[in-house]
Amino acid sequence: MLEARLAEAAILKRLLDSIKELVTDANFECNEEGINLQAMDNSHVALVSVKLSASGFKKYRCDRPLPLGVNLGSFTKVLKCAKDDDVCIIKAADDADILSLTYEARNSDRIAEYEMKLMDIDADTLNIPDTDYDARVSMPSAEFTRIVRDLSQLGESVRIEVSKEGVRFISDGEAANGNILLRQTDDDAPPEGVTIEMNQHVNLTFSLKYLVNFAKSSTLSNVVQLMLSNDVPLLVSYDFNQGHIRYYLAPKIGD
């Protein structure tokens, strides 16, 4: 059985908001180390990987590996019934087809109980190889959100170039184009500043609609890391106290 007590429902609400438009159904794989999710988006262009460590919960118990197949739309609706600062307890019995959620209000005696149907999801787990990326960029997550939102007004794609100059985001739309250069900030480390590590010049093109979607995770962390190598998927990673959310995005074939 699974019993997990989360100090604040907000973390789950934000996680669901970060993935619900990419993925329809997914398995939350629970084991004694915590809860993991890996799912491809419907068009198999992006992969999202979530980890919630057992140590990030106020109380966590999972006797044996348990896949919880969830419709993310339904999960989002049930989580909307929780206040951000409610304590959230999720429970599932072995072989059960129901996930129960309890929200305990922080400052009152209100206890709300919900149940959600679980489903069997037959999803392949992909093997993500360890990669030594040619470039690592760390920047404020709000800045990344602004860049991808701004450029998505102009075109469908963004070219990301990492060079000695810094990291440049370039969009070439039919009617307008734009580019944004971020240089490493020498006097400011993350979360406020930008750090760039580069072994090799990188130049890759990605679909902006996915990046706009990934940027929703800025509610989970003030910092985002971009890891890039030529001709491999971009890794967009947000770390937070209880775990992380990582997105992998396949590149577009460049011009």
Partner: peptide, 14 residues
């Protein structure tokens, strides 16, 4: 989408 590669081409099933 034109020119868009699939993530499965990079991450294979184990």
């Amino acid at each position: 989408e034109i020119g868009q590669r699939s993530i499965e081409g990079f991450f294979k099933n184990p």
